[in-house]
């Protein structure tokens, strides 16, 4: 279970950005989690809620944008939503698919006062 150390890294970035922007109370943290990462969104939310108790982050909400595993067909250029690791372009049948999304583990933005 590494969602706690992911949470710690998120809060470190949030703390730095709060200082830079003169924010005293964090209201919301928005993150982006790809389908092919080893991070479970529900576990991350749980860890976040536990980690911010009794800290300056208390009361903040974690908003998670989940990104599906997606690809682009190298033959016809079509966008592919990859499900069950079926690497086949639904339009042209090619299996030459470039993975373009699903590995994200990013902080998007924050809101605070």
């Amino acid at each position: 279970m590494h969602e706690m150390s992911i949470t710690r890294s998120m809060l470190e970035i949030a703390r730095r950005e709060m200082e830079v922007n003169g924010i005293h109370a964090l209201r919301k943290l928005k993150v982006r989690i790809g389908e092919l990462t080893a991070v479970e969104p529900d576990t991350l939310k749980f860890c976040f809620d536990v980690a911010i108790k009794g800290t300056p982050f208390q009361g903040a909400v974690l908003e998670i944008e989940e990104v599906p595993l997606g690809g682009r067909c190298r033959v016809c250029g079509g966008e592919v939503r990859i499900t069950a690791f079926d690497n086949r372009c639904p339009k042209c049948g090619s299996t030459d698919i470039e993975r373009v999304s699903g590995h994200e583990l990013d902080i998007i933005s924050m809101e605070g006062d």
Partner: peptide, 9 residues
Amino acid sequence: EILIEEKIL
């Protein structure tokens, strides 16, 4: 909203 856009790790 303050944009951060940074990898968590």
